[in-house]
Design a binder for these strands. Structure first.
Lengths: 140, 140
DNA sequence: CTGGATCCATTCAGATACTG
DNA sequence: CAGTATCTGAATGGATCCAG
């Protein structure tokens, strides 16, 4: 659980609180669109900065560097600078990064699996004459 | 793959593009901190608005309603209004919602599993270049 | 209790220019 | 090629007030 601070365990309360607040911080770091897409794009292999820019469609220069730093700081990827001219910088997922990628893969799979369901749900919701907001299903 | 528009399949290009752009849109909708935390909080069954506010620590009134509408629109949860006074509104995950929750669970597990690794990675990253053994876990 | 609407500060994100 | 810095408009998020 990342939502709440305290769990009903027998552990030291302060420790749990601190660990959970850290968990929440980490969760907030990675639970954003660009970070997840970058992780997905890095896949199994090593990618260069410019390659990633092409892979993650629509990302800006700034967001890419910013999120790469963030992911590097959290140890999800390593940044390798080859001292050549011009410079060649490669990004590779670490073990934790690859582990996270597995769950991101699952999210992507989910997206494609329920694409049709979601689309029809949207149509239902957006249709005004059905008045979904006024629907009172279970009487009491 | 959600990162790029086109896949090298033999499917109709326009269809693939449209589906993938939709996938990206959906991905952007759900790949945000609050949406995922709400899904995670709902996991344990049906929750009321105020209960969710307590479950998802730190969320504001506005963000909660906003994200609940978003999730409802995408068909990840259903909103049930009981015509009582005061009103009682309950939110429950749908099948797609529960499926997504499974992957969110995996993300939460990941967070806790690699908590220590990430913390030390951060310390390493944040330390200018000094000896790592001198570092102390300064809170925050 | 639920939730819409508004105001306002903060943050985000894109464009651009500049270094090594 | 990779990255930083800055400037600016857009979007986000919180607080508050109002309504059913």
């Amino acid at each position: 659980m990342v939502t709440k601070q305290l769990k009903g365990t027998s552990e030291d309360a302060a420790t749990v609180t601190r660990a959970d607040s850290l968990a929440r911080e980490i969760f907030s770091d990675i639970a954003n669109k660009w970070a997840l897409l970058i992780i997905e794009a890095l896949g199994e292999g090593t990618r260069r900065f410019t390659e990633l820019r092409g892979d993650v469609d629509g990302i800006s220069h700034k967001m890419l560097t910013q999120n790469l730093r963030l992911l590097e700081r959290n140890g999800l990827l390593v940044r390798t600078v080859h001292p050549t001219v011009p410079p060649r910088v490669e990004y590779t997922l670490t073990e934790p990064g690859r582990a996270l990628r597995a769950t991101v893969d699952a999210m992507c799979d989910w997206t494609h699996r329920y694409l049709a369901d979601i689309e029809s749900a949207r149509n239902r919701f957006d249709t005004p004459d059905a008045a979904p907001h006024l629907r009172q299903t279970s009487g009491q």
